[in-house]
Amino acid sequence: MHIPDGFIPLWQCAIYYVILIIALYFSLQWARKNLDERTVPLLAVLAAGIFAIMSVNVALPPGISGHMMGGALVAIVFCAPEAAIIIFTLVLLVQGLFFADGGITVLGANVINMGIIGGFAGLYSFKALRKPIGKIPAIFIAGWLSIFLAAIAATLELAWAGTFPLNLGLITMGLYNAIIGILEGFLTVIVILGLEKVRPDLLAWNREKKIVDLKSESNEAKSK
């Protein structure tokens, strides 16, 4: 999923950077309004966490391995795709600058795929599906979509760059990430449900409720 340096021509990289700068401008506006003494460490920890969980490789039944990406997770925890944009810019910057995973010139393209598309697709699919199909399937689909759509976007970018043909890319990247997406969806469900059980106050949709109410809800869930 991480496009490396040299695979996209510089002029196209510049277009992606312009999109990234605009997205970051709005995300920082959101951060100025919404971040307080509790959410700053949460955002920084999530960024470090996304970095670390990308190192946890898991075997999948067809004989391939993959790792969680976390775009939907971040957007759902904060109820804001802006958080995913800030976190993925930082994570991909560190990966590109220190580990050469992804790249510097392609940072804009990679953040668009994993942060912007992953975050927006994850959060809004969750919001749209939460009521009609329930919370757990909605989180699963949000996680799956965030990976699948990010991979499709990467394929389109590589095809536009003339690096990889569209049809072959859609088949290989699409199929591979449709499988990886199952893992993403499953792990996103476990992490969010776990967080809701242990620290419901960390989830944005619970912040407006009183902590006492949350604790009693949590105790009720445990007793059941």
């Binding site: 509790r38 460490p41 949460l42 920084a44 920890v45 999530l46 470090a48 966490g49 670390a52 969980i53 946890v56 898991v58 969680m68 893992l183 499953f186 792990l187 469900v189 476990i190 992490v191 776990g194 967080l195 242990v198 620290r199 960390l202």
Partner: peptide
């Protein structure tokens, strides 16, 4: 096994968050 991976990620996140906070 997948559940254990999910719990590991969640525990790692929670422990680091509580220290970090």
């Amino acid at each position: 096994r997948m559940k254990q991976v999910g719990y590991t990620i969640m525990m790692m996140f929670l422990r680091a968050y509580e220290h970090g906070e």
